Simulated scan of single mutants.
Amino acid sequence: MNWLNKLTPPGVKSIFTKRDTPDNLWLKCPKSGEMVFAADLAGLMHVTPAGHHMRIGPELRFGYTFDDETYETFPTPSVVADPLKFKDDQKYTDRLKKARAKTGNDDAMSIGVGKIHGVDAVALVQNFAFMGGSLGMAAGEGFVAAAEIALEKRMPLIAFTAAGGARMQEGALSLMQMPRTTIAVQRLREAGLPYIVVLCDPTTGGVTASYAMLGDIHLAEPGAMIGFAGPRVIEETIREKLPEGFQRAEYLEEKGMVDQVVPRSELRATLARLLAVLMQKNHTEIEAQPAIQPVPA
């Protein structure tokens, strides 16, 4: 206690007592640096006025994708929680508990089935908030399960990818998910079912090296970082400065790696048009569906 506290009368001190206030009322836009009122983001589909697309979880993604925010969720298969008994500065099981408490999800993958402008579809959402969306056994099983649901119901599969790579706590077992998910994509192709990938920020590592780049069509949200290794690692390896915007969605679209960069407000309508062609549905009926319009700031 300092000398000023000793001289301050108790009644006066109570007036200036610090009140508990939420620390997430305002968010800083990474693109412009301006402060954005968090409550306004819902009406803007979690896109800042400067155009930065915030990372969102499965519930918001499903709501923005399916008609009338109506969909059915499917559980992902259970796997062995800690096959290698891994521990660094803390146990892997403890990391999983924290991630589950933070997100409310069992792992990084979530599966939803609903209609997009009247067309039935299966959506798989990879949640970056769950341990960086890392690809482990549970995520691999989730992808395979989504593909099997699409095969069983004869529906297209749409994967919203967001990951920092493979889950190091599972070692080689996480790397095995790359060929497993590749086989699942091949099964969809053999069945004649569309597989569309929406690349979200960020999509990197083993996810980019497998199912994220095996789609029939690749869409991307504006500004999404897409690549294998990060730009800093590449610069340190080749000892050269990378081009402006390297590994961003717009740069990859220019180079032909991404088919189209689509703002979040236009994504559902874009998916509907693609599905109308790929599933040979009535295009006129689908065009009649209203597009999602963000609420003006």
Rank of each mutant, 00 (worst) to 15 (best):
Gly104Arg: 06
Val122Glu: 07
Ala139Ser: 11
Gly136Pro: 04
Phe128Trp: 13
Met131Trp: 04
Gly136Glu: 01
Val119Gln: 06
Val119Ala: 04
Thr103Leu: 12
Lys98Ile: 12
Ile158Cys: 12
Gly118Leu: 02
Arg154Gly: 00
Phe130Glu: 07
Val119Lys: 03
Gly136Val: 01
Thr93Tyr: 13
Glu141Pro: 08
Phe143Val: 13
Asp107Ile: 00
Gln90Arg: 14
Ala108Ser: 12
Thr93Met: 13
His117Phe: 10
Ala99Lys: 04
Val122Leu: 04
Ile111Trp: 03
His117Leu: 08
Asp120Met: 03
Arg95Leu: 12
Asn127Ser: 14
Asp107Glu: 05
Gly118Ala: 03
Lys98Cys: 06
Asp106Asn: 02
Ala101Arg: 08
Gly136Met: 01
Gly132Ser: 08
Met131Ile: 05
Lys97Ala: 12
Ala146Arg: 06
Asp94Met: 11
Leu96Tyr: 12
Gly112Tyr: 13
Ala147Glu: 13
Ala129Val: 14
Ala108Val: 10
Ala121His: 09
Asn105Val: 09
Met137Cys: 05
Gly133Gln: 03
Ala108Met: 07
Met155Arg: 14
Leu151Ala: 01
Lys153Asp: 04
Gly136His: 02
Ala146Pro: 13
Ile149Trp: 00
Leu124Val: 02
Gly132His: 05
Phe128Ser: 15
Ser134Met: 07
Arg154Ala: 00
Arg100Gly: 04
Asp94Ala: 14
Gly140Pro: 09
Glu141Val: 01
Met109Glu: 10
Leu124Cys: 02
Ala150Asn: 13
Ile111Ala: 09
Ala101Gln: 10
Lys91Tyr: 12
Ser134Ile: 04
Phe143Gly: 06
Ile111Glu: 07
Lys91Cys: 11
Asp94Gly: 08
Met131Tyr: 03
Leu124Arg: 06
Ile149Glu: 00
Ser134Pro: 04
Gly118Thr: 01
Leu96Asp: 11
Gln90Ala: 13
Arg95Asn: 10
Gly104Lys: 05
Asn127Asp: 14
Ala138Lys: 05
Asp107Ala: 06
Ala121Lys: 10
Met109Ser: 09
Ala129Gln: 15
